[in-house]
Design a protein around this nucleic acid. Structure first.
Lengths: 206, 206
DNA sequence: CGGACTTCTGGACAGTCGTCAAGACTTTCT
DNA sequence: AGAAAGTCTTGACGACTGTCCAGAAGTCCG
């Protein structure tokens, strides 16, 4: 394989991947709006610049498309809070920033996150979803752990719970807030911030 | 005479309600097996002693049937842990019993609970589900609160978090354990017990 | 028994679904 | 230029969905 053909084939691959990403972005809009159960490939195509047939040109089937979508979204989502870790100077600041960031995510990206919860729930029923869902869940757990361990460092106190427990607690708080917030509860975000504020210090030895 | 509500107010109310419950029980089996998205009325009927047409004789539509089902289940589920509250003599015993009870539920009734999570998630998308889901969620929150406040009484220490926060934390722990457990992780239940063991004391002032 | 009512069946209807493939259009290569 | 490869549209397919309905079957009572 010469340098030229290598470059060419790579360019084609890039273009292919580019269109996949473009279609996945369209699909994400539709999925986050309707949820897994009610989203059809035709609906996805209608909210994009292409016809429904093209989806099978870029994705093997519906499952592959959806998994590609959620991975695309979570890849960006997973690094969102690292900025907070990087800039926080004190434990209290980290705690406040983290609580605020969760509330902002809940408010601005609520529809995307309900999609994530929807798909994670599908994994409870459909085995084919589990591998990918568990992998994403693992990266989220690590993201939370970076927050918690940084908070512990800044506090100078050791952590008393496992990464899994810490993640589960914040995930529960977020999920509850999301339901309340989408249902129109005006206090949902404040309750979330308060919950995080109270929960984070309890993960350390007092 | 085409409306279901007319039939309800007829003479044989008991028999009518009885059959509704019978059909709902069949439906629960199917729903907990397949989940909301993939359960059809024909599938439900096939797992019962009747044909698919009869479902529209006892329920207005699919949504009414499913909501009736989950309410039937949660009505029993919500009182399951009150036994623990009633018999616990010490805080430590309550803590251990509660952790064990959650693990047992996760193991034995995992498929039913994934259905609950599935429907609660649907409420994030479909507004018509929200009212019922929020109501059930509220009773679950109260159930957890009875545990936590009894634990606080037995410990002689005040609680530091709100009912919503306490519920969200345990719900997160349970949900995480359910996913792991259904995925075949042998440590899922022990992790759940450990998480509950660690979380419960942290809800009080040390 | 016979009629009135309730309960239940099974098929029909009008959609929607994922998937596929034939062909048209576009780009790239020789 | 034309051939080849890549990209996209369109229509079709069989299967499945919730809903409805005509009528069979069962139940009750005079």
């Amino acid at each position: 394989m010469t340098d030229v053909s290598d470059r060419i084939s790579r360019r084609q691959v890039d273009k292919f991947a580019e269109r996949r990403a473009q279609l996945a972005t369209s699909a994400l809009r539709t999925l986050s709006e309707l949820g897994y159960a009610r989203t059809s490939l035709r609906e996805i195509a209608q909210n994009s610049d292409f016809s429904h047939g093209v989806l099978h040109y870029y994705f093997r089937d519906k499952v592959e498309l959806i998994m590609f979508c959620v991975k695309l979204y979570k890849a960006e989502c997973v690094t969102r809070y690292d900025q907070i870790v990087a800039t926080a100077r004190t434990a209290d600041q980290l705690r406040v920033d983290f609580a605020q960031a969760l509330a902002t995510t809940c408010d601005e990206d609520g529809t995307m996150h309900r999609l994530w919860y929807d798909l994670r729930n599908q994994a409870l029923f459909e085995e084919s979803f589990r591998e990918d869902v568990l992998e994403i869940d693992q990266t989220l757990e690590l993201m939370i752990w970076r927050i918690v361990s940084t908070y512990a460092d800044l506090s100078g106190k050791p952590i008393t719970v496992s990464p899994a427990t810490a993640y589960a607690q914040f995930d529960g708080l977020f999920q509850q807030a999301l339901l309340r917030h989408l249902s129109g509860d005006p206090k949902a975000l404040d309750t979330l911030k308060d919950g995080v504020d109270k929960t984070l210090p309890k993960l350390l030895i007092p």
